[in-house]
Amino acid sequence: MSERAIIEVARGAGGGAPVASLRGARSRTAKEAAIGGLLFAAGAVSILTTVGIIAVLVWESLAFFRRVSVAEFLTGTVWTPLFVPQHFGVLPLLMGSVLVSIIAAGIAIPLGLGSAIYLSEFAPERLRRFLKPVLEILAGVPSVVYGYFALTFVTPLLQPLVPGLQLFNALSAGIVVGIMVLPLIASLSEDAMNAVPRGLRQGAYALGATKFEVATRVVTPAALSGIVASFILAISRAIGETMAVVLAAGMTPNLTLDVRESIQTLTAYIVQVSLGDTPFGSIEYQSIFAVGLLLFAVTLGMNVFGRWFLKRYREEYA
């Protein structure tokens, strides 16, 4: 059939009317392009902000490290930037953050995982649909409230039980931060467990597994990558937590493993200097950027590890 004939046939199918142009209206294409551009700009704002933050952190830190060596900063055990003689050993701050995070993880991981298993495997559907949003609301409580809760409730409660517990201490801070990130673990782990195919559960039940065995031997291992990723996210949030820790653990840079004592975390130091009257450009001022950069490196490292873990161990179900 010739090309002309094909066109004739096509016209015939259209009822003899001339074939309408398929070219879109100019105004519509322009509008689409504009919308695309606006949406790109919206996304670009957050990316550019992140790039800007990193740039400022690195820039100011470079100024700091011209005056204090990286080795001295990372290995020094005394942190007294606001007194004479000044020492810039970040280990006491790092230890403070790690201590709080370990206590928080010790609370949040078992309780969070337990809640997730309960919600996903044991709770009746209606209760689950009620409890899960409640848990997520708990994640929305401002952290300053948790700090106040630690200072005015948890510490007085613990003082009779833990001899030598100071008013400001790492233990209470770790506990409330743990309670704070618990919903994160519970909610994300529950999502991961819920995504495990029903067929796997049925297969295990059909072999005579109990509910608990199904939860621990089939569902939890199958959801492990998502569960571990939730742990890592929660811990990196605990490291970054600021207000609750400032209020509960105080501001005493202290290289110690004694959880009864007051400590200072990386974040708490940044708050302390930011709120003080440190002159712009001074070494104290610059030091918060170095601390911030370290904090950023730690949380970024954990997030990257979390993502890698999720990708590496994700189970694909046929």
Binding site: Q202, G203, E213, R217, V218, P221, Y317
Partner: peptide, 29 residues
């Protein structure tokens, strides 16, 4: 269910090794 076994429409092996799949039931007891 330990005395009366079941096989489903869609194959549902556990995301474990071949050995661990077969050993799953006996290990429960």
């Amino acid at each position: 269910r330990r005395r009366i076994g079941m096989v489903f429409q869609k194959p549902n092996p556990f995301p474990k090794s071949i050995y661990d799949n077969v050993a799953f039931g006996p290990r429960l007891y």
